[in-house]
Amino acid sequence: MALSREQVAMRVAQELQDGYYVNLGIGIPTLVANYVPEGIEVMLQSENGLLGMGPYPTEAELDADMINAGKETVTAIKGAAIFSSAESFAMIRGGHVDLTVLGAFEVDQNGNIASWMIPGKLVKGMGGAMDLVAGAMNIVVTMTHADKYGNSKLLEGCTLPLTGVGCVKKIVTDLAVLEVRNGAFHLLERAPGITVEEIQQKTAGKLVVNGDIPEMVFN
């Protein structure tokens, strides 16, 4: 079965390492914070100027001056720091953030990502995504493997305006975990019950399958 949003987040959380500074995008990436493995400590960066983002506030803690990059009310953990947008993006562009997780419309086999604009239709803007993909040490993309019409989102070349070039290292979809290198998607893991054939069929770009592909393991 294809993974739920929560399961995709659970699988991404396995990429977290002790001591990581992590920026989580809007949507599924935000859910990753709920599944930080026990025994490791990560610090969440929110690009509006918060390092050490905590959970949503209680009614009593609610404060309009305390929000995350998704404009949701939020709290700061003990040991958090708050700073300006320029400082925030200095740490992002300067390569100080260890991992960024974000969603996408399309990714291609050269690690290009399109996530911000569908010409003539939806205009939202790139927000901080272009800075994050250009600056983070490691980039994981979460998305469904195919769109609702069954069209692959893992392409030979992105068709939509790009967010960044050659930057995506890993993709966690509802069907698979893939690594992007040497101009191809390398299949690392399958969602439980999903066959390599189905993944192959829903991957439009070059897919490399080496040996037996294990199923994802969830604790």
Binding site: E47, S84, S85, A86, S88, F89, I92, R93, M126, G127, G128, A129, M130, D131, A134, G135, G164, V165
Partner: peptide, 25 residues
């Protein structure tokens, strides 16, 4: 891009006419 926007303002205020960034390449 959000970081470019912040830096454009920072640079404007600091007398830096332009800057190079990897963002958006």
């Amino acid at each position: 891009p959000q970081g470019t926007l912040a830096e454009k303002m920072r640079a404007g205020g600091a007398g830096i006419p332009a800057f190079f960034t990897a963002t958006g390449y």
